[in-house]
């Protein structure tokens, strides 16, 4: 086993959340997660420093997530809470909001979704720019558009 694998295991919650941002079906989420872990396993030897492990594994997850996207990214239409997440019914309002957020994120076009997902994981614009290979200004534009589209979806759920 690679020396860094236990550190990768600590990144699993980040990886699961990223995978869930790309795939709604739980069985396919597992399949994608497995693909991501396999790619990480094979790429670990190319990692220079342990400090950059989280960006490294998330970059792989986003790349494979983008390849995994089944339907063409569409402009989001208005999204109601009822259709937000077909998974099990939520017990509390916070869980309901989480389900809505997850479904709304999945509806964002890929370039906006990647920026938003990384922002939600706590990365700043400069780090996101490095991970996606785009300029910091571009990250700002995409983040702004992503939030505006989330707001539009939220307004449409009344």
């Amino acid at each position: 086993m690679h020396a860094l694998w236990p550190e990768v295991e600590r990144c699993l919650p980040h990886l699961w959340r990223t995978v869930r941002g790309y795939e709604a079906n739980p069985a396919l989420q597992e399949e994608l997660m497995q693909e991501v872990l396999l790619a990480i396993w094979r790429s670990l030897e190319r990692l220079r420093t342990q400090d950059s492990l989280l960006p490294f594994v998330l970059r792989i997850a986003h790349n494979l997530g983008a390849s995994h996207v089944r339907d063409a990214a569409r402009l989001p239409r208005r999204l109601s809470l009822e259709e937000a997440a077909p998974e099990e019914a939520a017990a509390d309002p916070a869980e309901e909001e989480r389900r809505w957020l997850l479904a709304a994120v999945r509806r964002l076009p890929l370039p906006l979704r990647q920026v938003l997902l990384l922002q939600l994981e706590g990365f700043d614009y400069r780090e996101i720019a490095g991970m996606l290979g785009i300029s910091v200004d571009n990250v700002g534009v995409r983040a702004h558009r992503a939030r505006r589209q989330l707001q539009e979806m939220s307004d449409g759920c009344g």
Partner: peptide
């Protein structure tokens, strides 16, 4: 797969 998204794409 481990490159940044632009390079990967």
């Amino acid at each position: 797969v481990a490159e940044n998204t632009q390079v990967y794409a």
